[in-house]
Simulated scan of single mutants.
Amino acid sequence: MSNPFQVPSAEARGPRPGLAVYPLPGRRGVRAAGEVGLTTRAIWEGVLEQAVREGEGVYHLELSDVTFVDVAGAGALAAAAGRLRDGRRFVVRRPPAALRRTLDLLWPDQEGIEVSAS
């Protein structure tokens, strides 16, 4: 299956962080693997924008294979959640600890994000 959101994890100059995103089977959402940072932010923001445009209800973000999300990536998630309408929300499953702390610290009242440890 082709993945329009994938960034290679290595270039000629050596390894670089990458982010791969795949559809979740059986639910609306994606599974991501890698890092969300400067080199992968456009992918992350594209995924979130697509989620905001899609239907209604819950959009799942399975992040158990994501090792790092920078503050700008957390901010993009909070901003996207703020654009959700009519009780919609992101369910973020097993995010990196730093993402959970950043959301709790900077966006504690963001109702559009539900973080699940399981």
Score class of each variant (00 low, 15 high):
S2E: 14
S2C: 06
N3P: 07
N3A: 13
P4C: 01
V7T: 12
V7N: 11
P8G: 12
S9V: 13
A10K: 08
A12P: 00
A12L: 04
R13L: 12
G14D: 11
G14R: 03
P15W: 05
P17H: 09
P17N: 12
L19V: 09
L19S: 11
A20M: 09
A20G: 09
Y22C: 11
P25K: 06
R28I: 05
V30R: 07
R31T: 14
R31E: 11
A33Q: 11
G34F: 04
E35C: 12
V36C: 07
V36L: 03
G37N: 08
R41M: 11
A42T: 15
W44V: 06
G46E: 05
V47Q: 05
L48M: 10
L48I: 13
L48Y: 00
Q50C: 06
V52Q: 03
G55A: 05
V58I: 02
V58G: 04
Y59C: 14
L61W: 05
S64D: 11
S64E: 12
D65N: 11
T67R: 08
F68E: 08
V69S: 09
V71D: 10
G73F: 00
G73Y: 03
L77S: 12
L77Q: 03
L77T: 12
A79P: 10
A81D: 05
A81W: 01
R83T: 10
D86H: 03
G87P: 09
G87E: 05
R88N: 13
R88F: 05
R88Y: 01
F90V: 13
V91H: 05
R94K: 02
P96F: 00
A97Q: 08
L99T: 14
T102M: 07
T102A: 07
P108G: 06
P108R: 04
D109N: 07
E111D: 15
G112P: 13
I113F: 01
I113K: 05
V115H: 04
S116D: 15
S116Y: 03
S116H: 02
